[in-house]
Computed example of a mutant assay.
Amino acid sequence: MRLLLTSDTHVPTRARSLPAPLLDALDDADVVFHAGDWVDTATLDLFRARSERLVAVHGNNDGAALRAQLPEIARVSLQGVRFAVVHETGPARDRERRCEARFPDVDVLVFGHSHIPWDSHAPGGLRLLNPGSPTDRRRQLFATYLTARLDDGHLADVRLHRLPPRR
């Protein structure tokens, strides 16, 4: 099963459109995770139309129209792997401990907000993944997103994709 993880798309405030490589990955994925900060409903509609399955939440920059359609936390089990998606997890310091306490029944937590890619494990085994942002790199060298695979109930081939600079 092919997974796409993204967050903080911020269209149209940070970019007029989504990068072509992200759209290609969207079309190729079996399950798409979006950890919030869509900013407009048109981007949500695009993801819904092009995703085989979308697991998504709202973020702090999402207004009432998006909040009415998306939860604060989404959960899904795929091949026995328990995922949760949330926009914000707080400061980087002690993130693993806080998230493990907040999500004790989860194997993989997908989050956003910081625009900083993150891949770590909490002491109890929770995997934390932040795909960064495909449109607003902030202080990062590249705009990014993640892909992964689920193979027989195991998360595999987690890969950070760096996007070329916008013109």
Rank of each mutant, 00 (worst) to 15 (best):
R93S: 12
R93M: 11
D94R: 14
D94V: 02
R95H: 09
R95D: 11
R95C: 12
R95N: 07
E96G: 14
E96T: 07
E96S: 14
R97V: 15
R97F: 15
R98I: 11
R98G: 09
R98N: 07
R98K: 14
R98W: 10
C99W: 02
C99V: 09
E100K: 00
E100R: 13
A101M: 13
A101L: 15
A101S: 14
A101C: 05
R102E: 15
R102L: 13
R102W: 13
R102D: 12
F103T: 08
F103Y: 13
F103H: 10
P104D: 04
P104H: 08
D105A: 13
D105S: 07
D105L: 02
V106T: 15
V106S: 01
D107R: 06
D107W: 09
V108A: 01
V108L: 08
V108N: 03
L109P: 03
L109H: 00
V110T: 02
V110A: 03
V110C: 08
F111Y: 14
F111P: 02
F111Q: 05
F111H: 15
F111M: 11
F111K: 08
G112H: 07
G112C: 05
H113C: 02
H113F: 03
H113S: 12
S114L: 05
S114N: 05
H115S: 09
I116N: 06
I116E: 10
P117E: 02
P117Y: 03
P117M: 09
W118S: 07
D119W: 05
S120I: 07
S120A: 15
H121Q: 13
H121L: 14
H121N: 07
A122W: 04
A122L: 01
A122S: 12
A122F: 05
A122E: 03
P123W: 07
P123K: 13
P123M: 01
G124N: 08
G124D: 13
G124R: 13
G125S: 09
G125N: 06
G125T: 05
L126K: 06
L126T: 08
L126P: 02
R127D: 09
R127P: 08
R127F: 10
L128A: 04
L128E: 05
L128P: 06
L129K: 02
N130F: 03
N130Y: 06
N130V: 02
P131C: 10
P131W: 09
P131H: 09
G132S: 04
G132K: 01
G132R: 00
P134Q: 02
P134K: 06
P134Y: 07
P134E: 01
T135Y: 04
T135I: 05
T135L: 04
D136Q: 09
D136H: 12
D136F: 11
D136R: 01
R137D: 11
R137P: 05
R137E: 00
R137T: 01
R137N: 05
R138N: 04
R138P: 01
R138G: 00
R139Y: 10
R139N: 11
R139L: 10
R139G: 03
R139Q: 10
R139T: 07
Q140A: 01
Q140F: 00
